[in-house]
Every structure is written in structure tokens, then in C-alpha cells.
């Protein structure tokens, strides 16, 4: 048998065995990975949504897109928290494109009428020790109970109501801006956001 065929065969066998093992691993871990991601979302939802919902907000969802949610018009999942027939609030992720280093994803939960019940930063790449105070301090709590009307939306340096951090103004400014836009979208589209689960809803 010529050498090149031997080499080809050896590589083929290695490739085949490797691929089959990976296929099996993927099949085994697919369920647990999906479950871990679901729990992660559910954990974030329970933190931002008002207490007491009796549905499963992670499966009661609707997709909407708007330039105020993220610049790229990517569809955003709205998780609806309901108690019986009444709407408790909706949580959704807004993207601040103007962080100090890259995008900041913030989960924002709003009560019908347009009051914020909670926020949580879900993904960011801000400087540890400076910009990441948006996550590790209780700064996110300063958004609780805010509406478009009762608050000056900006950091204190810009004449607004929200604290900036020593050495980090860009990060909180970006977060405040993104939340304000998300809140404005919510107020205008509240009816659409809470409409009953349709076929559009994504699991």
C-alpha cells in the first residue's frame, strides 16, 4: 500500500473516531446545558421581576425588536411575569453600545405603568475595580421605583439623579442611557408587550 494512502487512512480513522465521540458527548450534554441556561435566566428573572408571579416567565415570552433595545435591531425576548390574569411585570435585556469596553447587556424589569422593579447587568467587559461597580455594588438598586417622569435620567455629573463612580463615568452613563431607552420603549408598547402568548413566542 502506498504511503500516502496509509497516511490518509490514519487521518480518516482518527477523524472518524474523534467525530463520533464528540457527537455522543454533545448529545449527552445538550439537555443539561439547556437546563443550566434556563436556570440562569430564571435566577436573573426572579431577582428583577416583582415577587409573587405564578407563571413561568422564562417560557411566557414574546419577541420584539426596536432600535431603542439594541442598535442592531436584534429581536429581544420579553419575559412576562403574571399572577393569574394580572400582569406583574416584564423583563427584557437592553444593550448599551457605548460602554467603556464594548457592549453592556442589562436585564431590566418594568411594572405595568412604567415603573422599574429591578435591573441586573448580565454581560459586560468593563474594567475590574472601576466600571464593574455596576455589578458588584448595590448601585443597580438605585433604579428601583424609577419612572420616566420621576427621575432625571443621567449621572450626577450630567445633572441627573444617578451616582457615577470615582474614575468611571462612562460605564454608568452608558447603563443609565440604555435603561432610559428601554423604559421608553416599554411605556410606548406596553399593550404589545403583555399581549397573550402567541405562536410567535419563543421557548
Amino acid at each position: 500500500m502506498p504511503d500516502f494512502i496509509k497516511m490518509g487512512l490514519a487521518l480518516m480513522v482518527v477523524g472518524l473516531v474523534a467525530t463520533s465521540i464528540l457527537a455522543v458527548t454533545e448529545a449527552v450534554t445538550r439537555g443539561p446545558i439547556a437546563e443550566a441556561k434556563r436556570l440562569e435566566i430564571l435566577r436573573a428573572l426572579t431577582q428583577v421581576l416583582p415577587q409573587g408571579f405564578d407563571n413561568a416567565p422564562d417560557s411566557d415570552t414574546i419577541l420584539l425588536s426596536d432600535s431603542r433595545l439594541n442598535r442592531k435591531l436584534k429581536p429581544v425576548t420579553f419575559y412576562r411575569g403574571r399572577k393569574g390574569d394580572s400582569n406583574l411585570g416584564a423583563a427584557f435585556v437592553v444593550t448599551a453600545p457605548d460602554g467603556y469596553s464594548g457592549n453592556i447587556d442589562i436585564m431590566l424589569a418594568v411594572i405595568p405603568g412604567g415603573t422599574i422593579s429591578g435591573i441586573q447587568v448580565v454581560a459586560h467587559a468593563e474594567t475590574p475595580g472601576l466600571g464593574d461597580k455596576i455589578v458588584i455594588t448595590d448601585w443597580p438598586q438605585s433604579f428601583q421605583g424609577k419612572t420616566l417622569d420621576n427621575t432625571k435620567w443621567g449621572v450626577k455629573k450630567d445633572g441627573g439623579d444617578f451616582d457615577q463612580f470615582a474614575g468611571a463615568t462612562i460605564t454608568p452613563r452608558a447603563v443609565v442611557g440604555a435603561i432610559k431607552k428601554g423604559l421608553a420603549f416599554f411605556v410606548e408598547n406596553e399593550g404589545k408587550i403583555f399581549q397573550p402568548a402567541s405562536t410567535e413566542a419563543v421557548k
Binding site: 464528540l22 458527548t25 450534554t29 446545558i33 443550566a36 440562569e40
Partner: peptide, 13 residues
């Protein structure tokens, strides 16, 4: 590496 990646994603999320 892929196996470790998948397994960690599933069990050490």
C-alpha cells in the same frame, strides 16, 4: 478540549 468545554458548560455552568 471540546469534550471538556461541553461537560463544563453542562455541569459547572
Amino acid at each position: 478540549v471540546t469534550i471538556i468545554d461541553l461537560v463544563m458548560n453542562a455541569y459547572l455552568h
